[in-house]
Simulated assay, not measured.
Amino acid sequence: MQRNKGAAFERKVAILLTEATGTTWRRRVRNQAGDSDVVADEPAFARISIECKHANVLCLPAWWRQAQDQAGAEGVPVLIYRQTGARGESVLVDAHHLSPNIFPVRGRHTVTLGWEAAMQWMREMLPAKVTFSPGII
């Protein structure tokens, strides 16, 4: 039952990310240890490593370590979680990726964002690193 709950949440997150970013996201069906739960087809998001968790009891430190391990040295760990009964998804990110000037050390501080704020960050900050995007002037 927990596996089905997790898979359903990953599918939901993929749909929400697709709607919020305009980029197709999909659940990685046969993910192995160390793989992101949800991946984008857009190269701008290739470094994003998403870990999804939906649980009755939050285990944020353990989940965050898992997200960091998945991302590795070059990736951007993103933990999208929801506590059963809560409204909306929360997004935990490394503060360094939000503001490297203020938080110069990666992995030292985290920030929890609401869904809308997190999606604004993904839309505005990360795609800007792509050198060419058709249809964008």
Rank of each mutant, 00 (worst) to 15 (best):
S99N: 15
L60F: 00
R123G: 03
T112A: 15
F132Q: 13
Y81K: 01
R65H: 06
G75V: 09
R11S: 14
T24M: 06
R87Y: 12
R87C: 07
S36P: 06
V130T: 15
T112F: 05
V111C: 01
I48V: 07
D94Y: 02
T18G: 08
T23W: 05
P104G: 08
Q68P: 07
V38H: 10
A95Y: 00
P43V: 07
T18Q: 10
E124G: 04
G135L: 09
H97P: 13
S49F: 03
L60P: 03
A118C: 11
T18Y: 11
I48Y: 02
E19I: 07
A128I: 11
A40L: 02
C52G: 03
A7P: 02
R47H: 13
G85A: 12
G107P: 06
A7R: 15
I50M: 00
M1G: 15
I48E: 00
P100K: 02
W121Q: 00
N101Q: 03
D94G: 03
T18W: 12
A117C: 08
T23Q: 10
C52H: 00
D69C: 05
L58I: 12
A73E: 15
A8W: 12
Q83R: 07
W63K: 00
T110F: 04
G107S: 04
A55W: 09
T131R: 11
Q32G: 05
Q120P: 03
A46N: 13
A62E: 13
V78N: 01
L16A: 07
G22R: 07
V91T: 13
N56K: 15
R3V: 14
Q120V: 14
V39Q: 08
Q70L: 06
A40F: 05
D94W: 01
Q83T: 03
R82W: 01
A86I: 14
G135E: 14
V57H: 05
S49P: 00
I137P: 13
T131V: 15
S90G: 07
F9Q: 02
G75N: 06
W115M: 11
I136R: 14
